[in-house]
């Protein structure tokens, strides 16, 4: 299995880069009356890498994922920027190319495993069907692959589990089946939209560890959209923080979570209870996140930001700040100066 996935378009000379999203803008409604839920998402992913896209509701993270998968909901349109998935330009892709995109280039996993599965079909059949949809393989071969995938997903005795129906499985096991279906087409990129939000903590850990294992074993890129910083901290190599439809900070996970260079990231980290903090240590972020359609000149976080100065209402530029890190805050040096000596 792993060899065949590696073989899928794996040209030894080809770059490791799998996905590049630049200045993505998505709009709802008419050009002048509508609003833009995503106004500057920039994102990249390489093979074998786990990227976390972190943000709260309304940050545009899920829409960005859907745009990458070419699955924008009706009414939402691409207004600018470029999405390149393993050589396919999603914005201008033909129908045939989009078909290739779904499943063969990009697999997608959603929050609620039950709605992603057909309740009247055996789980093995669903995986085999997904394999046959993308590759010209015989029934027997598809079944063999499905069993192999089930085994890889941690199902003991996959030959017999193959015959189960979704309702006979627990939530965590269902999500594993969904992951197997997404992987059946041997995609290079796996997009996971809040894959563990509906799952219990102990199950969450096992599913997350599985995803990390898949990334290195199959050499695929995994993007995990989550609102849970703990999830991102546990498994991601890199983290992209989104706020109000914009990328505000990006960098290696450890760096971003320990030494954030954007006030929003810092505020978010301070608002989350941790093992050692007491309730007095917690600092709620003042105000509330902007609502869709709010007019936000300059930095969208400025109204809630303790570091904001008048110039923050001017145009925002994304700056590289070393170590492969980017920030959209013009006062990032103030944050850099706050890094404690022991760090």
């Amino acid at each position: 299995m792993s060899a065949s996935v590696n073989g899928n378009g794996a040209d030894p000379v080809a770059s490791r880069s799998l996905l590049s999203v630049r200045d993505l803008r998505l709009g709802v409604g008419g050009e002048d009356s509508g609003f833009e839920p995503v106004v500057g998402a920039t994102l990249r992913a390489d093979r074998g890498e786990v990227v976390g896209v972190v943000g709260e509701s309304g940050s545009g993270k899920s829409l960005t994922m859907r745009a990458i998968a070419g699955l924008l909901p009706p009414g939402v349109e691409l207004r600018g920027g470029a999405i390149d998935v393993d050589g396919i330009d999603v914005a201008t892709a033909s129908k045939a190319q989009l078909r290739k995109l779904h499943g063969e280039k990009v697999g997608m996993i959603f929050q609620e495993p039950m709605t992603a599965l057909n309740p009247t079909m055996r789980i093995g059949t669903q995986i085999a069907e997904a394999a046959r949809a993308h590759h010209d393989v015989s029934r027997a071969e598809a079944k063999r692959r499905a069993i192999e995938l089930l085994g890889r997903m941690g199902f003991a005795d996959p030959e017999n589990r193959y015959r189960l129906y979704p309702h006979e499985l627990s939530g965590g096991m269902r999500q594993r089946v969904v992951i197997a279906i997404a992987l059946a087409g041997e995609p290079g990129l796996l997009l996971c939209d809040e894959p563990t939000t509906a799952l219990d903590a102990t199950v969450t850990m096992r599913v997350l560890d599985l995803l990390v294992g898949l990334a290195s074993e199959f050499d695929i890129g995994v993007i995990i959209v989550t609102h849970d910083l703990g999830v991102a901290a546990r498994i991601c190599d890199r983290i992209v923080v989104m706020y109000a439809g914009r990328m505000v900070e990006e960098g290696p996970a450890g760096e971003v979570l320990r030494r954030p260079r954007h006030p929003y990231t810092l505020a978010l980290l301070r608002a989350v209870p941790t093992r050692d903090s007491t309730i007095q240590d917690l600092r709620a972020i003042p105000g509330s996140p902007p609502r869709p359609g709010d007019d936000l000149p300059g930095c969208p976080f400025a109204p809630r930001c303790e570091f904001a100065e008048p110039a923050c209402l001017g145009p925002v530029e994304v700056t590289a700040v070393g170590d492969g890190r980017m920030t959209a805050c013009r006062r990032h040096e103030v944050l850099a100066g706050m890094v404690s000596a022991r760090g």
């Binding site: 903590a201 102990t202 901290a233 030494r259 810092l266 100065e309």
Partner: peptide
């Protein structure tokens, strides 16, 4: 124990706490 082990903890912030937030513009 498993429940505790599954809790996703963040790495410690290596940032000095602000003495007092600067005044808002």
């Amino acid at each position: 124990k498993n429940l505790l082990a599954a809790a996703t903890d963040l790495p410690d912030l290596e940032m000095e706490p602000l003495a007092a937030p600067p005044p808002k513009p």
